[in-house]
Design a binder for these strands. Structure first.
Length: 519
DNA sequence: CGCCTTTGACCAGCGC
DNA sequence: GCGCTGGTCAAAGGCG
């Protein structure tokens, strides 16, 4: 899980900006630029100021040589050029009115610095333009420094998360740890241990370690999840253990073998498209529900442990409840990545809080309360055989957005509130595919047309839903402002790998995230 | 022919 | 121990 958190965080930001209305978040090219820094694999190429190319920019650029200007700019910013058609069209056409926009538009109406100035308006001379470009360069350097600070902050949060995870795991009874992990999962514990070791490293080391883990071991990010979820599908292994193993443990420390991420959405379709290929392997009538429950397994790879259940709500048959278990062991198509991230991260959150004790669950709930702004309630319910985190896309935003269901013996029905709110300290961060976790529950009227669109994609649905929620803008603004301290922009549309397809061997890690460094 | 769905059988966990 | 329930298996049949 730790290896997943930072990438997911940025993935969240990227996803947000993909999802959010262009009018609100993507109306400025600097907005693109800054998040391109974050999202691009060239991040490091641009963060070291000033580069040779930048120097060439000054040495060769003629104030009236728009071709050179364009070329130079493209050299520096080519990674976002294509995503900035509006501005670059001017460039490519050699328009003399190309805007040299000094605004730092965050997309959140947090504008600062000087207003845009055009060459035509100024009738500038070479010295003026040179000065202007120099000032812009300085500004960009400052931005880079600020971005570094942001990275430092995030990395520290990541480190803290690792520490908390390690502490939580240490709270596990030793024998339980031994019994849970079969030989095939020993590597997974190593990952956890690596995470703990990395706590002692510098932020830079942490970052590098994270990246290496993600790249060298595509499943590393899921390994912690696999410890429970994948094993859960091989539950027979666990069940082969002496029954006294669980009985000997305090009720609230019994290892949870399964974590389920349930998505409630309104849909008339028999199944919500989530980008994966599923094969139906069973159907049962569940007690208390006149609608049958269908069982699907992922068929995108042999042996993929991911399965899902689809069932209509007994209360409202327009509500389709899709429950996911397990983690994919194969690359995912772009359309499926977000959902996979969501379920994995949700399970991670759930398990990290439930793997140890009730106390740790409470603690983790408190911790996640700082990371999941819109989750509102954790419920200990006897209605679920194993912990289920429900992402409810059907309810009113004033109601519970996400619920934790956990069934420790003897705790059925107990409920404790989780005052989940946007974290001033961390903002929208870390665990979970924030596209879902960070979202505010949208009004049904906003969701209905989206969810009823057929065929529907869950990713598209939620993205559109987020985009349609004006309150989310304010929440995002507050969250980002709290962690960045200065206005920041949105992204360029690093569209969840949609442009380049799934990341081979790293289906759940945004490619860009493997390039982060705190250097 | 291969893939998929359907559906009854089977198994395990759990409560009484 | 028995029955209920959830989950999975696998044979049979449908479909392109």
């Amino acid at each position: 899980m730790p290896t997943l958190t930072i990438p997911i965080y940025f993935f969240f930001l990227f996803s947000l900006c993909i999802s959010i209305s262009p009018n609100t978040y993507m109306d400025n090219r600097h907005h693109h630029r800054e998040f391109t820094f974050l999202s691009s694999a060239h991040f490091l190429d641009h963060i070291d100021p000033p580069s040779i190319k930048e120097m060439d920019f000054f040495s060769t650029s003629s104030p009236r040589d728009h071709k050179n200007n364009t070329s130079s700019r493209d050299t520096n910013d080519d990674h976002y050029q294509n995503r900035d058609d509006q501005h670059d069209t001017h460039d490519r056409h050699g328009s003399p009115t190309r805007v040299i926009d000094h605004r730092v538009n965050t997309g959140l109406n947090l504008t600062c610095a000087s207003a845009g100035v055009t060459k035509a308006e100024n009738g500038e001379n070479p010295e003026t333009e040179l000065s202007s470009l120099e000032s812009e360069l300085l500004r960009l350097q400052e931005e880079n420094n600020k971005l570094r600070n942001v990275l430092d902050h995030i990395t520290k949060s990541y480190t803290q998360l690792q520490a908390q995870l390690f502490i939580a795991l240490q709270n596990l009874p030793q024998n339980m740890e031994t019994k849970i992990v079969d030989p095939g999962t020993s590597r997974k514990l190593d990952v956890v241990n690596d995470a703990s070791v990395s706590d002692e490293k510098t932020d830079q080391d942490v970052s590098v370690s994270r990246s290496n883990n993600a790249e060298a071991c595509p499943d590393a990010a899921e390994d912690v999840l696999d410890r429970s979820s994948s094993q859960s599908w091989g539950s027979s292994k666990l069940e082969e253990q002496p029954k006294t193993t669980a009985e000997q443990l305090p009720a609230d420390q019994i290892p949870l073998r399964k974590a389920r991420v349930s998505v409630r959405a309104r849909s008339e379709a028999p199944m919500i498209s989530d980008g994966c290929q599923w094969r139906k392997y069973g159907q049962k009538m569940a007690k208390g529900n006149p609608c049958p429950r269908a069982y699907y397994r992922c068929t995108m790879a042999v042996g993929c442990p991911v399965r899902k259940q689809v069932q209509r709500s007994a209360d409202d048959k327009t509500v389709l409840i899709t429950s996911y278990e397990g983690n994919h062991n194969h690359p995912l198509p772009p359309a499926a990545t977000a959902m996979a991230n969501t379920t994995s991260a949700a399970a991670a959150m759930l398990l990290s809080g439930s793997a140890a004790s009730k106390e740790s669950l409470t603690n983790s709930a408190g911790y996640y309360s700082s990371t999941i702004p819109y989750a509102s309630m954790a419920t200990l319910s006897a209605s679920a055989p194993f912990p289920t985190i429900t992402l409810d896309l059907t309810q009113n935003p004033n109601n519970a957005a996400m619920q934790l269901h956990r069934v420790p013996p003897g705790h059925g029905g107990a409920t404790f509130p989780l005052p989940l709110h946007a974290a001033a300290s961390g903002g929208p961060h870390l665990l979970g595919h924030p596209l879902f976790f960070q979202q505010k529950l949208l009004p049904p009227q906003a969701l209905m047309p989206l969810l009823q669109r057929q065929p529907s994609s869950m990713v598209e649905t939620v993205s559109a839903a987020i985009a349609s929620d004006p309150n989310f803008t304010a929440a995002l603004a507050a969250a980002i402002s709290s962690i960045i301290g200065v206005p920041r922009g949105g992204n360029d549309g690093n569209n969840n790998n949609s442009g380049s397809g799934a990341i081979p061997g790293s289906p759940q890690l945004p490619q860009s995230c493997t390039t982060f460094s705190t250097n």
